[in-house]
Design a protein around this nucleic acid. Structure first.
Ligand code: SF4
Ligand code: SF4
Lengths: 154, 154
DNA sequence: TCGATACAAGACTAAAAACATCTTATATGT
DNA sequence: ACATATAAGATGTTTTTAGTCTTGTATCGA
C-alpha cells in the first residue's frame, strides 16, 4: 500500500521542471543531481512521462527535458498514473472480474469508494500549487537563483 | 499502491467470523475452504489477527478461531493494519526522516492528507455493517443456513 | 565533416517483497 | 494413548521493484 520509488521520482522530476516553467529545457543530468534520482532510472521514467504527453524529450548536444503543459494543468494523479498505471487499492478495484463475487461484495464497495476518494485528492493537486508554495521537493542546497554554473557541466 | 493478498485474506477471515457472531468457534479448514484462502497461509494471518487481539485461536481437537470483539467494534482499518502494518502511501509518510526535506515538502503534505483520509474511510467501516448487508465476501455457494454437514469434516 | 555530448531503448541484474508450503511441535477431546 | 487441530517458524517460489549497462541515434559546434 505505497507509492513506488519510480512514482516518487516522477513527481520530483515534474516538480523540478514546473519550477522552471513550461517550455524551459533542463538537462537530464541536472534534474537527476538536483532531485537525487539515479540518472539512468530517470531516463526510463522520463520516457513514460513523454509517452503520457506531460514532457517533451530533446536529444542531441544540449538536449534535455521540458514541460509541454502549464504546471497548473498537470495533476499529481496524472503524473503518478503515467508511471505506475492506474491506482488500484485492491485487485478487484481495477479488475472486478478477478473475484467472482465482486458484484455483490460489500467490501468491494468500500475499496471502490476509498480508491475513488484517493484519486480525487491527487487530482485536485496541481504542480503550479506544489511549486509555488515556499517548500520544494529538491535535494541539493543552492536553489534560489536557479542558475548554478556547476550544473549542466560534467 | 495496493493491498496485499494477505490483507485481503485477513478481511475475508474476519468477515466470515463476523457472520457467525462474536464467540462462535469456526475451524480453520472451514474458513479456508469457504473464503478461498490457502489453509497454511490463513494460519499465519490468523496468528497476526490473534496478536492484534481481534480473534482468539483454540488449539486441539475441535479447535478453531473465534471473534473476541463484537463485529461492530472491529474496523477494516484495524484488520488491515494488523496484517500489513500501518498504511503508508509513500515512504516519507510513515518515516519522515527517510527524506531530509520532508519538513518543508509540499508533496509530503499532500501524501499525509491523502493517507489520513484513506485511513479514516477504512476506520468508518465496521464488520457488523459489512456482514449485515445482503452481499458477502465468501466463495462457495451454500451460505444461507450456515450449517453444511460437509464442512468441518475431512 | 567529425567528434563530443546528450538522450533512446531495451537487455540485464540484484535485491526485496509477496505468496505459499512444509516440517516439527504442542494442545485438546475422547 | 490416539486422532485431530492449530502453533511457529523455516524454507521455497514467483513476481515486482530498483537500478545498471550496452548499443544506437540525434544535435551542436569547431
Ligand atoms: S471478496 Fe470482495 S473485496 Fe475481496 S477481492 Fe472479492 S470482491 Fe474484492
Ligand atoms: S521529496 Fe517530499 S514527497 Fe518525496 S519523499 Fe521527500 S518528503 Fe516525501
Amino acid at each position: 500500500m505505497r507509492l513506488t520509488r519510480a512514482g516518487e521520482y516522477g513527481i520530483r522530476c515534474v516538480l523540478y521542471l514546473a519550477r522552471h516553467g513550461k517550455g524551459t529545457l533542463v538537462s537530464r543530468k541536472e534534474i537527476a543531481v538536483r532531485t537525487d534520482v539515479p540518472p539512468h532510472f530517470l531516463a526510463k521514467i522520463a520516457q513514460q512521462l513523454a509517452r503520457a504527453g506531460i514532457i517533451e524529450i530533446l536529444q542531441g548536444a544540449n538536449g534535455g527535458y521540458r514541460l509541454l503543459t502549464d504546471p497548473e494543468r498537470i495533476t499529481m494523479l496524472e503524473v503518478i498514473e503515467a508511471i505506475i498505471g492506474e491506482i488500484s487499492l485492491n485487485d478487484c478495484v481495477s479488475r472486478p472480474e478477478s473475484c467472482r463475487i465482486s458484484a455483490r461484495c460489500t467490501v468491494h464497495r468500500v475499496w471502490n469508494k476509498a480508491n475513488q476518494q484517493l484519486r480525487a485528492t491527487l487530482e485536485e493537486t496541481n504542480f503550479a500549487t506544489l511549486a509555488s508554495e515556499d517548500a520544494c521537493c529538491l535535494t541539493p542546497f543552492p536553489l534560489a537563483g536557479d542558475h548554478d554554473p556547476s550544473m549542466g557541466k560534467k
